[in-house]
Structure formats: structure tokens, C-alpha cells
Amino acid sequence: MVAKRIIPCLDVKDGRTVKGINFVSLRDVGDAVELGRRYSDEGADELVYLDISATFEGRRTFCSLVEKIALAINIPFTVGGGISSVDDAARLLDAGADKISVNTAAIKNPQLISDIASKYGSQFVVIAIDARQVDGRWMATTHGGKFPTDKELFSWAHEAQERGAGELLFTSMDHDGTKAGYPLATYRELNRLLSIPVIASGGAGSIQDIADVLGEGCADAALAASIFHLGEIRIPDLKRELKKLNIPVRI
């Protein structure tokens, strides 16, 4: 049986991880490679590195960082942030990334998903959707929730799958940062609608929240950032608890 995956997400700016990080034993909390290795040692199943640099120079630094990550880390990792062309994706593939995630650029140009998937395979393309509820409908947003779009979550997710996306990373902007749990019914519906794996993101405040989205919400994986970085939930504890709750995990 395929194990449910636990995925820490690391934000990277100008080649270094940002956000408060609570690993006391790390020599350099900004070192994206060392932090990734630490999570890998703790039992993370995959890693996501998100480039939040806004400059050309920052993006170039990120690409050379990806090469270092690929050399040091022996679990799969996804990179995202600012990927808007097949060339951007190719550079990251060449640097050693296992998958790339696309979000805003794919909404502006859905063909981007088809182009990357047909060239490098569906397993390489993660479609990330940030959505919020507007008059009872889930609508996709861009730029990390800043701007509304006319794309409805379920139809957009389905279109992305048909275009060749190999996984869906769905974040509810209504739940992100609230620590109040995930919109379980929405995840269930995505799982029913799609044949590709669904990764839940945004909203977890407790181990039970993660157990709920992997169990009742039928998500294949749970991604989180601050609860791991701040040490609020430790991955070994999380996996032990999930196992007790009969959720299949790799320990």
C-alpha cells in the first residue's frame, strides 16, 4: 500500500531559507541543504523548495542551490516559484529537481502544463492551486492569494490533470495560517474527481488535523511549513501518531 506522504516546505530567498526556524542543533538555519537533510533524516518523505526571490540574480542563485540539494538529498524534491516557461522548468530539471510546481503562470497560460508534461512527463509537473470561497464557490487566486481569477477550483484542477499535471497541491487561502484544520469535504471531492495524487496544504494546527485530511479528506500527502520549522510538530512524532491511527506511513 502506498504510504501517505509528509512534506515540509522550505521558502528560499536569494539562496537561503527564510522564516523562523527552530532547530537548535543546526549550525546555519539559513542553509537550505542542511535543513533539507535534517528533515530527510527525521523521516520527511519529500521536500518542497519554494523560491521567493524576486530578482534575476536570486533566481540564478536558486538554480545553483538546486544542484547542491540534488547532490546532498536522497529523497525526491519539488521546486517551485516563478516558473513561467518550459525553459525555466528545463533549467531546474537539469539542476536535478525531481518535480516542478506551477501556479500563477499556469493560470495565465494553461498550455504551459501541457508543454512541460509532454516534454518531461507528468511525474515532473505539480499543479499548485491557491483558492478561496467566493459566494460558495472555490475560486483560484494568483500571487499567493492576492488576486482573484475566474477559474473555479474543481474544473481547473481537472483541466490541469487532463493537460498532464501529475499531482495537485491545493491550498485553501481561507484556511492557510489559521491552524484550524483543512476543508475536508473539498479534499474528498478533489480525490473523487481526480486520478492524480492530491497534496493538502495550509491550515494544519495539530497532528489530528493532518490525520483528518489524510484519512477523512482522502489526501495522499500533507505539506506544511511553519508547524515543522517552528518545531510545533516534529515529523517523527507525527508519523508515530498517524501510524497509531492506522494511516499508512513510512517509518
Partner: peptide
């Protein structure tokens, strides 16, 4: 072969 609850591709950690 497609089946209820079976994700294809088979992606992730398995024993």
C-alpha cells in the same frame, strides 16, 4: 488497470 481508489501513476513510497 484503473480501479476504485487506485491512483495511477503509482507514485510515492511503498514497501
Amino acid at each position: 488497470q484503473p480501479a476504485e481508489g487506485l491512483k495511477i501513476p503509482h507514485m510515492g513510497w511503498n514497501s
